[in-house]
Every structure is written in C-alpha cells, then in structure tokens.
Design a protein around this nucleic acid. Structure first.
Lengths: 248, 248
DNA sequence: GACTCGCATGAATCACGGC
DNA sequence: CGCCGTGATTCATGCGAGT
C-alpha cells in the first residue's frame, strides 16, 4: 500500500491528475469556506429571511440571496467533474454534507456526471440538544456512481452509521471516526486507489491504508498537510512493523 | 381530545380550512419514488413497486403515486402553502420523504413559506441489502417552522429515530410506527391540533390522541378512510375506558 | 421465561424481454 | 434503439414457534 499527499489547491491538483487513475472519491468538502459567507453562517439563512410572508416563493427569483449557495454549487460541481474524469468506470464518489447543503450537494454530484445512488445518514449521538425542537445530530453522505454499480462484488455495506466524533487525540474540527471511514473505503476494490481532495487530518487515508487501498490526498493548509503526512506515514510503518513482527 | 377525518382530496379540503386553526402539520405525502425509469415510478401501483412479489399479506393500494418530479414539487408546494395559511405562528411542519425526493421536498417546503430547520433521519433496521454497495435503510423527515421556533417550551426532541415498520397488524404499505409518531406530535403544544393531509391508516392521528393533541386528517381512499376512522375511534374509546377505569 | 432456530418480508433494485 | 413493464434476486431483521 502507498499514499501520495499533494500540498495545494484541490481543483488545481485534480486538473493535473491523469484520466481514470482513481477507483473511489471519498471526501468532506469545506462547506463553510467554499462559497458561503460568514454572515450566512452567523445570521439566519438567506432563504429564511424571505420566506416569512404567506405567499409561495419561487427560489429562482432570489438570485442575490442564493449566490453563496450557488457559488458553492458551481465550485463543487467543477471539482466533482474533475474527480469524475480521473475516476475509472464503476467508481463511487462519497461526499459528506450537512442537512443545509444536502440539496445543493446532490445537484453538484449529479451535474458532475455521477449517478446519485443514495444518502447515508451518519448519526453523532453526542450532539447538543435543542430547546423547543428536534436536535440536529446527523450529517449525510451522498454517494454516486460513474456508470453503473459493480454488482459482481460480494459486498454488502451498511445503510447508516452511528459514531461519535473522535474525542481524544482529535486534531481537526471535522475529523471523522476512522471506523466509519474504514467501512466507506471498502466501496473501493481492494488494491485500488481512494482520492480525498480535502484530506484534512487524513482519516480517509488512514482508513484506506488499513483496508489495503492506496490513497491520493490533497490538502491546502500546510499545518494539516503535515498532520496528515505524519498520520499516514505512521500507518505505513505500523503496518510494516505488524508485517515484520511475526517473522522476528 | 377529538378528531376530524375529512374524506376527499387533500388540497381541496385544505383550501376550505380557516386560517390559523392548526398547530402542527405532520404528514407523509405519496412521493412517487421507487424506480429507475419514470415509467417504473409512474406506471406501477404503489403495491407493485414496494412489496415483494411473494409477500403473503394483502395490503390495499394507495392513490397518488403517479406524479413526475416537477409536478410533485408544484403540487406539494401548493399543498404546503395551504397548510402554512391554516397554521398558527410558530407552527412546525414535518414532511416524510425518501432520499430521492429530499431536495424536491426541501424546495417545496421553503417555497411554501416554511423556514426549513432540519432533516431527521428515520432508520429502518430491517431493510433490503444491496449487492455491491450501501443499502438504503432510511427515510427522512424534513421540518420547518412558520416564523420562529418557540424556544420557551421545555421540550427536547431526538435528532434521529431507529424503528422498524410495524410488521404484525400492519394495514398500510407505508404505515409508520406509532412510537415514532408519538415523538413527532410532541412538537405540537399539548391540547393543540395536528393536521395530516395524507392520513392513510391514521398513525399520526393515533399518536396525536395518545399524546393529548387534537387531530384533523384527510384521506382520499375510502378504504383507508374507514381504516383510519376505526383506529381513531378505538383510540378515543380506549382512552375513555382508561380514564373511566380507575374510577370504577 | 430467556433464548435459539427458522422463516417470511422489505416506500428495493436490477436484468431482461416486449412493444 | 430506447422506453416501458414484469419477474427474479438479496440478506439483515423481527416475529412466532419450540426448547
């Protein structure tokens, strides 16, 4: 098993990848920085502001208010289009999103050419309750296929995940539990290559290596690139150690 | 506690409701999904689409599963707009959907004026596995508010549900577990009124009455209107019995 | 009665044949 | 050739029967 970690902008790096060199795309795009403004994060959503009257509204009539969402959509579409090009036939793309960006993410996924095939809830039991209503305890993983799903594989994967975010040893805000990622990377054939354009602290890569898949990652922040590189390298040497161990 | 069950078309009945007579809308519209091609979705009956060929049970078909996506959106928008008008300030609408119709449902909810506030996964553990990929084991409940959420209530509701469809005594293909519905109706203030424009076998109403909320339902199919009426009446007399019991 | 065993089922999904 | 409709297939789970 091996990994490659590119330091730089996801879109730029993806454009330089050759065609059909990837067997799965698993990623958590930064949906707070990829086009949404700070005002949208802190105040009510753009849509909410205009939906308090009692008439039905056509969302297409509010281009200004939707601009943040729309630019997120076009940016993600472009990124997923490049990923599509770099992916082999029957590849699967898995994209994390929160409930707010879920429709936009499904648009981007499909506009990029992937056939949307399902939505998998990831439930985080340790989330803050909400007074007066239902708490928001889940994220969603949208997945799509390039072409058709390979039905010859004897593979049956779960329809949901229940796992808390890692607590001890957590190095990234949105760090994913490795046990969840290990299930996800199994959608990639063994020995194939998993791409994560937003590597972050590298959990996708760690999971891929543990499940005997190769990994290609991209990370813009030098800090997290270092963190991910450290974790991935440790994973490989650990692996070597484990392999070497019994022989000693 | 009391209930009213209208027999007829949901939109027609809703248009006749007075303003601000409802405190919560909880419903599961017939969202024709289930199928790859449009014909698979629109031409087959619900029963043919959703039940196994060798199933021994004899559940009646239900109407309304013959819309394409665009007409589904405008139809649901109009319906939710009428519901919005009939709802009091701070009312909550909860709409069931599957992954395929989730973006469309969120559009309709918002276009009708509701402020989309979250998506709640309902996980059905007993669902068909899928060879070569992730199984589809959940439905989603989109919820929105008219105006703002009432934060004065000392109410903390779950962020997800895990429950199997009722198996014994089931009368409707898409019948919901009453224990789930009892959690949902709690979003309506006690003594308030819950509206379900697609009553089906009436689980929303049963849950509402059990949680001491009034219920207004609409059902087009005469068969299911009868079934729902029976269940609701039984609920009330049972309730009376329970109330009368200790006094005897 | 807790527990195992066996069997029917699923708001699915896919392949194939017909129009 | 593409769209349309029918039948076969899948296994984790829940329920009922039996120990």
């Amino acid at each position: 098993m091996s990994y490659t970690l590119h330091r730089g902008d996801a879109l730029t790096v993806l454009k330089a990848l050759p065609d059909e060199c990837i067997d799965a795309v698993i990623t958590d795009p930064p949906y707070n920085s990829g086009g949404r403004t700070s005002s949208e994060r802190t105040s009510r959503t753009a849509r909410a502001k205009y939906t308090s009257g009692d008439a039905a509204h056509d969302l297409a009539n509010f281009p200004g208010e939707n601009r943040d969402q729309r630019s997120y959509r076009s940016w993600l579409t472009e990124l997923l289009t490049e990923a599509y090009r770099a992916a082999t036939e029957h590849s699967v793309a898995m994209v994390f999103t929160d409930w707010r960006q879920e429709p936009t993410t499904s648009d981007a996924l499909q506009m990029a050419g992937w056939t949307w095939t399902g939505t998998i809830p990831w439930i985080k039991p340790a989330s803050r309750p909400r007074k007066g209503g239902f708490k928001q305890s889940s994220e969603f993983i949208l997945w799509g296929v390039k072409g058709t799903l390979n039905k010859d594989r004897d593979l049956y994967l779960p329809g949901h995940f229940i796992a808390s975010q890692p607590r001890k040893g957590r190095v990234h805000i949105t760090q994913k539990p490795v046990e969840v990622m290990q299930q996800l990377v199994r959608i990639c054939p063994e020995g194939g290559t998993v791409l994560d354009p937003f590597t972050g602290s590298g959990s996708t890569g760690v999971a891929a290596l543990r499940e005997r898949r190769n990994f290609v990652g991209v990370e813009l922040s030098p800090h997290y690139a270092d963190v991910a590189d450290g974790r991935l390298r440790r994973e490989l040497t650990q692996d070597d150690f484990v392999l070497a161990g019994p022989e000693a």
